[in-house]
Design a protein around this nucleic acid. Structure first.
Length: 515
RNA sequence: GGCCCGGUCGUCUAGUGGUUAGGAUGCCGCCCUUUCAAGGCGGAGGUCGCGGGUUCAAGUCCCGUCCGGGCUACCA
């Protein structure tokens, strides 16, 4: 039988890394088995519904190249793929009635106050907390009829069998069992007529032919309810695959301060989709052996249940940064420049760096980052070839796409800011003025210089000075030309800057030495 | 409180009874070198949560225990 899985987000907020990892596992699992991945929107909680999130979910998924063969926005024979629409079609009402007719579910008319009271009582008496029947599980038809006539609030609950052992077979953890007396009767249909996750997801999973219920391990506790539901219908249970979750550095669920960033913010921050995917898939899954850097094809080939880890993992930002850097370095120059061009040109990039942040220092840094990026964007429009070559020169020196702003800034600034300490150190060497003057003279009249010519000139100058190492010649020149002590190879950068720009910068340096 | 899941360097992990417990990241050092990176080489970092067993042999099997986490909603 062909594998069918589903990614079923609730549109209650922007997709974060945890959600995306879930989607990623299903994507690779389906591809590995040449099966089907379905996108289903679970919008049964109207109180938490956030408009516009569906679009962001789709955009996040598209950015990462997570594929679906069926579902919301794609289509398929088993739609609709949005649960609120399925509810409108009466799908859940129909299957609720089936359960009611079988006696596998029952109507309950407790008020929320009564429920709260019940829980309080259970807490005080140290009893298991939950709905284990109340007065409605075994109410007579007459009592139910009266309650309905009085218009009391009603929910439908699943009748969990008592005094039994409920066993599920988890594909990662093996056999898991519960005393059915510790499993309470879950609500299937809420007071507003909407189905709960427990009901809608399981009914849809069956109707959509889902073969593997892959989900986070936080669902293990509800698994017996779901198993009982499948059994009550007489449906074959899918394979349960409870995947480990991603935790923050504190070992707890991912939170804002621990890297649970909005998925698309990684794009805005300059991460490559492929790097993020490779990194995230490796949390909670390993291909065996020492493999880490993998192409998408290799991951598809290797991804399967045996590599899934039972223990949750921690999101390590530093390792993501390393991986992103190696992915940037692996890009061909044409691919690199188009990635950078797309990045600086994306409206969300600017919005990301310029958005409100609480601390002052952080905001200033972000503004500076965007300032440099905007400079690069301007450079690309005014002289694309020049900009592209500048980008290529910094490929080895960045971790994210955003780093290209700062790294290439001096190429576009008419008067790059000078690092004062560097000026103090390198403009003070005795040969500085002579070096700049000679270089200027050498440049005079030329329209361009090659890397080799620059190197030859500076080496010759060094030799005339009797220098063994070329450092004392290189460093002052670098500072004069870029204002900085770090950056791409000096000869390469000189060739790209060209005689005109260099001459102006040398004039400025000379003025600095002897005002 | 109850139920359930988990536990190998800080972190991600390899490991399926016999390995000096391996790799990656991060950290430190050296080399290369015009700087910073990148790259190469090396180092520190693990009593495999702990305690008992079983076995000639245990990270690997069994029992107990501790710690962490999840659920305990008419949220998902």
């Amino acid at each position: 039988m062909s594998v069918r899985v589903r990614y079923a987000p609730s549109p209650t907020g922007s997709p974060h890394v945890g959600n995306i990892r879930d989607a990623l596992f299903k994507h690779y699992f389906a591809k590995h088995h040449r099966g089907v991945n379905i996108l289903r929107i679970e919008d049964t909680d109207r109180t938490r519904y956030v408009p516009g999130v569906e679009e962001e979910i789709v955009e996040s998924l598209n950015w990462l190249g997570i594929e679906f063969q069926e579902g919301y926005g794609i289509g398929g024979d088993l739609g609709p793929y949005r649960q609120s629409e399925r509810k409108e079609q009466g799908i859940y009402a129909h299957w609720t009635q089936v359960l009611l007719d079988k006696g596998a579910a029952y109507k309950a008319f407790d008020t929320s106050e009564e429920l709260a009271e019940m829980r309080e009582f259970q807490q005080i008496n140290k009893r298991p907390i939950g709905y284990f029947g109340g007065m409605w599980r075994d109410a007579t038809p007459a009592q139910v009829e009266t309650a309905e006539r009085e218009g009391k609030p009603m929910v439908v609950r699943l009748r969990i069998p008592r005094n039994e052992t409920i066993v599920i077979q988890d594909a990662i953890r093996g056999r898991i069992e519960w005393d059915s007396n510790t499993v309470d009767d879950p609500v299937l249909i809420k007071g507003d007529g909407m189905p709960t996750y427990h009901f809608a997801a399981m009914v849809d999973d069956h109707l959509m032919g889902i073969t593997h219920i892959m989900r986070g391990e936080e669902w293990i506790s509800s698994a017996p309810k779901h198993a009982v539901l499948f059994d009550a219908f007489g449906w074959e249970r899918p394979v349960f695959v409870h995947c480990p979750v991603i935790n923050g550095k504190d070992g707890k669920k991912l939170s804002k301060r621990h890297g649970d960033t909005r998925c698309l913010d990684y794009r805005s921050a300059g991460y490559l989709a492929q790097a993020l995917k490779n990194f995230i898939v490796l949390i909670g899954w390993a291909p065996g052996g020492d493999r880490e850097l993998m192409t998408d094809e290799e991951i598809v080939e290797a991804f399967d249940i045996p590599g899934l880890q039972p223990a949750p993992g921690v999101f390590d930002m530093e390792k993501l940064r390393w991986m992103n850097g190696t992915y940037i370095r692996q890009l061909s120059v044409p691919d690199l420049v188009s990635a950078v061009e797309a990045y600086v040109g994306h409206p969300e990039t600017e919005a990301y760096w310029l958005r409100d942040v609480a601390d002052d220092e952080g905001r200033k840094k972000n503004e500076a980052t965007w300032g440099a990026l905007a400079l690069l964007r301007g450079g690309i429009t005014s002289d694309r070839e020049y900009a592209d070559r500048a980008i290529a020169l910094d490929q080895e020196r960045v971790v994210t796409l955003a780093d290209f702003g700062e790294a290439t800034a001096f190429f576009f600034q008419e008067e790059p800011p000078m690092d004062e300490k560097a000026v103090a150190k390198w403009f003070a060497v005795p040969h500085a003025a002579g070096l700049f003057t000679e270089l200027k003279a050498w440049l005079g009249g030329r329209s361009s210089v090659t890397v080799e010519e620059c190197e030859a000139f500076l080496r010759a100058f060094g030799e005339r000075l009797g220098l063994e190492k070329i450092g004392p010649v290189v460093h002052p020149t670098r500072v004069a030309l870029t204002g900085k002590t770090v950056g791409p190879g000096l000869f390469e950068l000189m060739s790209l800057l060209g005689p005109e720009r260099m001459t102006r910068r040398l004039d400025r340096a000379l003025a600095e030495i002897a005002p």
